[in-house]
Nucleic acid binder design. Structure first.
Lengths: 215, 215
DNA sequence: TTCTTCGGAGAACGACTGTTTACTGGATGA
DNA sequence: TCATCCAGTAAACAGTCGTTCTCCGAAGAA
């Protein structure tokens, strides 16, 4: 391992610059992906945007696919913490308030990181296998946590783990669809989109409260 | 117009061959799109697959984007009639039976036309604007018809048009998601996927029957 | 028949692609 | 201080790309 006692610190201006370039590559890619899919994103295209030589790309990623996987992590880690911060909201007894809060949270997320949201929605079913799978597993992981959170709620007594995961999946899918809808809607279409999303969540919430009716 | 009385018939072996080549181009494209997105599909790539000169492509489409729009029509017209034939099913009083029937229908559709389904799911949020929009309007049109069909049902008395369209949208979105899930699931994952889809439809159905509870 | 139409072929163009190989020069660690 | 590391450079490679222009030959119309 390292000779410097214990810690793996390379800790230099060296590593910092490398990370900076890596981030520049990811940012440039994210920008270019607004008008195309990852499967058509060229390595040279990205480096040209950043202002470095094409060959320098290989110092960071071996593929644009690998870059894509890195973008998945960045995008969904951001989404992850953002949503978690929102769902740990203090007061939300009323279901209607919780719905409005959730939709508002999604709207904020789309407004603050549109490129990341677009990337996830686009590549979720996109043509690059590793990226598609990365998104799939990350979303499944995320759904699992949502299922845990739902299970901890008092309304969820009597729910099987399977049902909880099913419900969480519905919520996650709906979140991605809603985020994409926000993206495609123009400035004047934001509020109607939000209203539609709330209505849909009301429907789901209703089904949820009556799930165990027939025991 | 035409000199031959009234009819616009060009009616030749000429037109037939042209349509045949056009169809060959679309089929080849659909095949190539299994492992990539439309935005990276090359004109030469398609013609090479068909076995014609690259320049012949322009006799049918000016773009791969235009080819994509044609594929949207073909895919969704197929889906359209397939689903309509299924939803006009004779006996389906029981909601559980209707759910099972619907999911089975989606499974059949995916099995019989996997490339079309993949294309729609992939390009729905894809990088080619005209194609994305074509899918959007076609799906909206389809959702409108579903809303009409739902409105004609006895369970839907008291439902506003807005609510009906919201519900139809949920069904359509769920259908696309489920179809995509069938695609990505391996042979052994088909039945679990179907079971999940049925469970989700049960949840929606439950929300639907209680939609007007608070009047 | 003769003239016209038009789907397709062929060649050539300039531009762009991913990848390799050998290199430079500043940060790094002893 | 000095040898080492390594992010980024530069040139060259063999391909592929979209698009243009000219031409061919069978089908269609008269």
């Amino acid at each position: 391992m390292s000779h410097t006692a214990g810690a793996n610190r390379t800790s230099g201006i060296r590593q910092a610059q490398k990370l900076k370039t890596r981030q520049a590559l990811m940012d440039a890619a994210l920008g270019l992906l607004e008008h195309q899919s990852l499967s058509s994103l060229g390595l040279r295209e990205v480096t040209r945007e950043v202002g470095i030589a094409p060959t320098a790309f290989y110092r960071h990623f071996k593929d644009t696919a690998e870059l894509g996987v890195a973008l998945v992590d960045e995008s969904l880690n951001g989404l992850h913490t953002a949503i978690r911060a929102g769902l740990t909201a203090p007061d939300a007894d009323d279901s209607e308030a919780r719905i409005a809060l959730t939709v508002g949270l999604i709207a904020d997320l789309v407004r603050s990181a549109p490129a990341h949201v677009r990337f996830i929605a686009r590549e979720r079913h996109g043509g690059v296998r590793p990226v598609r799978e990365a998104i799939g597993t990350q979303l499944a992981l995320f759904a699992g946590e949502v299922a845990d959170a739902l299970g901890a709620l008092p309304d969820s007594s009597g729910w099987s783990r399977e049902d909880l995961e099913m419900l969480a999946g519905v919520y996650v899918d709906h979140m991605v669809m809603t985020a994409s809808a926000f993206l495609e809607a123009g400035p004047e279409g934001q509020e109607p989109t939000a209203e539609l999303a709330r209505r849909q969540l009301r429907l789901i919430s209703l089904g949820r409260t009556h799930w165990l009716d027939g025991r």
